[in-house]
Design a protein around this nucleic acid. Structure first.
Lengths: 372, 372
DNA sequence: CTGAAAGCGCTAACAG
DNA sequence: CTGTTAGCGCTTTCAG
């Protein structure tokens, strides 16, 4: 009849009427509490089923203050690492009765905070920030709203922000060890976006481990976690006398002074680096240059790349994220009795180096102690 | 004080009190209607801002019947096509003030319906089913709840289900034309999951176009849209005398009787096929075998694959999805005055063949009219 | 164990 | 234009 014909929703009231009980009894039947007699419960459930009744999650959320939704903020899905993480996060939370409200955002500061405000409007029970920076203003607002936040695959100094990452510093170190052990002497690095903790930590672990062995980085480029930038960095490294890198002199005299190994801050860029080396510059990988990535995304195992890389253990990262968030959401005030901001948890999960064909085997050219 | 210390939410009431207006005026200030004087509006907005007030979307949804959430059901994100689509869908809907509630599901029938029920509980305004089948039971329930559904990248016969796909039949035809024109005579096909309309349509267009030219498919394998299965199919094609394919006799006599071109039902599998050919079987692509994919995912353009493929125009597919859903959601009863089920819209968007290096250029071996 | 009643935060008529 | 009054569908005391 009404023009704006909204659609019929079967309410708990309808069921109650038909079942000859009160609406609250219906509510109790579907709410977790077992505070209803077995007989009544069955009768109500039967009738509810017949009528096709299902409780309205939103109404429940309004009154209970729990929406059972988790906001996931994510900046880009190009890098295979994120789809994989999203999938696993989604599955893990779904298994616990939560659902992900996914919000895409560009990495610009303003956009992120705009998006987080909107997320909060939906009364999410928690927020996962995947590779997006959270300003402390923003964290304030989340805290004020009582919404726990965990930063996934990024850490920040902010003491109130929980984070889950892999052991990036250690991982960078493993790569350095490996490249030195396999006889490389001119070791280069292509950085990710310099604002990212993952980038910072991987590079620090890498460079400091080289340093402990008395080595220096041969040269350095910046790829910003973007394929095209990584290609540029690669070209610059091999063509223009280290336009972007250390002043080791350039090499009009040919490949001999070019890097013999490149550690790339993530797999996504490493693919672009390998393609540029092989198909644009005609340089052989791994024979002339070894390439190592970070993440161990599925494509790293594809034969065309067969990329040596450090694995980020997504399963455990997801579990840790789930733990942190659910503890804070469902935690029965066990920790931090008062309203004091509970201490942020920072979880770092170690991941192995996966050696594949983009690097030479350990003894192929063991010039381990050879110096320039 | 309360043990279950729920967190402070600033309500419209709080703002009203502080601003000396009624709660409904606050509501009106934030609701779209301009039914409030400029002065009052500004005053309210100022105070609201100071207090950090934001309307509770859920409460609004309960009373208005509009949640401004769209449920997106998606089965797997391994295939790059989906992350890309999700990202674009998310952006498009966000720009219109809607947000995606993402639900992962395995492809098993039971799981899907379970998930859809949960989606409906959240009072979503619409549902996008990305590559998951919807049983007609399920469609019934959605219809009963007044929730429009659109099937993304799949079509079904069900007349009540709107769908958005690319022109798969035509696309399959383009590939056949191209392979024939570039002189291939032993043309094979590796199928996706046989339950998928995309698979069916691509193959039909391909095979029928070959047929019109008096050609037959040389052999056929099944990859189920899964990399490992595609590899198996490839091995079978080149090793065991067509274990899975047509009975053309096998070829103990070598590569001469093997296919000289393979159309793979999507890019994701095509990568696995190329890897198997090149690195496992030592067969050269495109020199000995041409490979064509479907989708034009980002990796198809990566130099290591450089894959000839049919582009699925995601942008336009997303726009169409948006259109269909928003028409039904916001449509002021313009179409289908009554409560009659509005006719489902089926949109098919044409995509170009992108010729790259996994196939030989047109005139490399132009044996166009050569028959066996 | 169950019903009645009081809200959750908001929108939407309805008067003025 | 604005305040008052009903609800939306549900959870949660509070009596019995």
């Amino acid at each position: 009849m009404s023009l704006t014909s909204r659609h019929f929703q079967i309410t708990a009231n309808d069921v109650a009427e038909r079942a000859g009980v009160s609406q609250s009894t219906v509510s109790r039947t579907f709410g977790s509490g077992a505070l209803v007699s077995a007989r009544t419960r069955e009768k109500v459930q039967k009738i509810a089923m017949e009528m096709g009744y299902r409780p309205n999650s939103l109404a429940r959320a309004v009154v209970s203050g729990k929406s059972r939704m988790i906001g996931l903020v994510v900046a880009y899905l190009q890098n295979q690492f994120y789809p994989e993480a999203v999938e696993k996060l989604s599955n893990a939370f779904q298994a616990r009765g939560y659902h992900l409200l996914v919000f895409m955002t560009s990495k610009t500061e303003g956009d992120v905070s705009h998006v987080v405000e909107e997320i909060l409007d939906y009364q999410v029970d928690g927020i996962i920030a995947a590779s997006v920076a959270m300003s402390s203003d923003l964290l304030q607002r989340c805290a004020a709203a009582g919404v726990p936040v965990v930063s996934f695959n990024r850490s920040q100094d902010d003491a109130s922000l929980s984070s889950v990452t892999s052991a990036n510093y250690a991982g960078g170190g493993k790569v350095a060890e490996f490249l030195m052990q396999t006889g490389h002497t001119r070791i280069a690095y292509i950085a990710g976006w310099e604002g990212a903790s993952t980038q910072r930590d991987r590079e620090a672990g890498f460079v400091e481990t080289l340093g402990k062995a008395g080595r220096k980085l041969w040269c350095r480029g910046v790829g910003n976690f973007v394929m095209e930038d990584a290609k540029q960095a690669t070209r610059a490294m091999f063509a223009n006398g280290f336009a972007n890198g250390f002043a080791n002199g350039g090499f009009a005299n040919g490949i001999e002074q070019a890097p013999d190994a490149i550690f790339v801050a993530n797999d996504h860029m490493a693919f672009a680096v390998m393609d540029t080396l092989r198909f644009e510059l005609g340089i052989k990988v791994p024979e002339q240059v070894a390439v190592v990535g970070y993440d161990d995304v599925p494509a790293a195992a594809w034969a065309a790349y067969n990329l040596t890389t450090v694995r980020q253990p997504t399963n455990r990262m997801v579990m840790a994220t789930l733990d942190i968030l659910l503890d804070r959401i469902e935690g029965d005030g066990i920790e931090g009795e008062g309203t004091h901001a509970p201490h942020a948890r920072r979880v770092e999960i170690d991941g192995p180096l996966i050696v594949r064909g983009s690097t030479r085997p350990k003894n192929a050219k063991d010039t381990k102690h050879e110096r320039l």
